Amino acid sequence: MTRSWDLHWPDSEPLGWVLRQNWPDRWVRFHSLPGSKRYADTEDERAEILRRHRTVLADLHGSDAADLLVISTQWGIPAPNHAPFDPDGAWPWRIVLNPLDREAGPIYCWVQSEVDEQALNAILLNAADDKGQFVIADKGLSWLYCPYDGGADVLVGGPEERDSLRDRYSDWLSALESGL
């Protein structure tokens, strides 16, 4: 996995905000609620969050969650065999330092390579509730989907692919020139 990561995302760590900064020509952000609302207040809004996430993921990959990788990060020292999601299926991958504050301590990256539909929905809703940081990818790591509390940063193969994806979901874009 490290070899594939370094091939597609050299000099980047699996942190959404780092990836967005390092690969702006491959990045687009989609908001998960109308009007750029950050958090859901109702079940209908939670359903809309899932619908938008799952729509873009299906566009990137199809509908089979079992073929996805999920990278989760945990700050600080983890308990043995403890991952932020399904500890039975996750394995430790790498330890990174915060590029903005190398003194802040380690960030542990866990990977789960088989995710069912229910687990994927839970991961997406945890991200929406700011209860975890995740990177979802195809097994070849050719694209990355980084959900957060307000939407998702998506990184694809290049500017043309990014522009095509951005155009398909233009109603979900930020009104800000920065795209944030």
Rank of each mutant, 00 (worst) to 15 (best):
R20M: 14
R20L: 14
R20Y: 14
R20F: 14
Q21N: 15
Q21K: 15
Q21V: 13
Q21H: 15
W23N: 02
W23V: 05
P24R: 11
P24W: 14
P24M: 13
P24D: 13
D25N: 04
D25V: 01
D25M: 03
D25L: 05
W27N: 00
V28E: 00
R29F: 03
F30E: 01
F30W: 06
H31G: 05
S32M: 02
S32D: 03
S32G: 07
L33D: 02
P34F: 15
P34T: 13
P34R: 14
G35S: 11
G35A: 12
G35H: 11
S36M: 10
S36R: 02
K37Q: 13
K37E: 10
K37M: 11
R38S: 12
R38N: 08
Y39P: 00
Y39S: 08
Y39F: 15
A40W: 03
D41F: 14
D41W: 13
T42P: 00
T42C: 07
T42N: 05
E43W: 12
E43T: 06
D44I: 07
R46Y: 12
R46A: 09
R46L: 12
A47P: 01
A47T: 05
A47M: 07
A47F: 10
E48M: 08
I49M: 07
I49S: 06
I49Q: 08
L50D: 05
R51G: 06
H53P: 02
H53T: 04
H53G: 06
R54F: 10
T55Y: 08
T55R: 08
T55A: 14
V56P: 00
A58W: 08
A58P: 02
D59F: 12
D59T: 11
D59V: 07
L60H: 07
L60S: 10
L60K: 07
H61I: 01
H61R: 05
G62K: 05
G62E: 06
S63A: 12
S63G: 12
S63Y: 12
D64P: 01
D64V: 08
A66I: 04
A66H: 12
A66T: 11
A66D: 11
D67S: 15
D67R: 14
L68I: 11
L68M: 11
L68A: 08
L68H: 02
L69G: 01
L69A: 04
L69R: 01
L69C: 05
S72N: 04
S72V: 06
S72T: 06
T73N: 13
Q74Y: 15
Q74G: 10
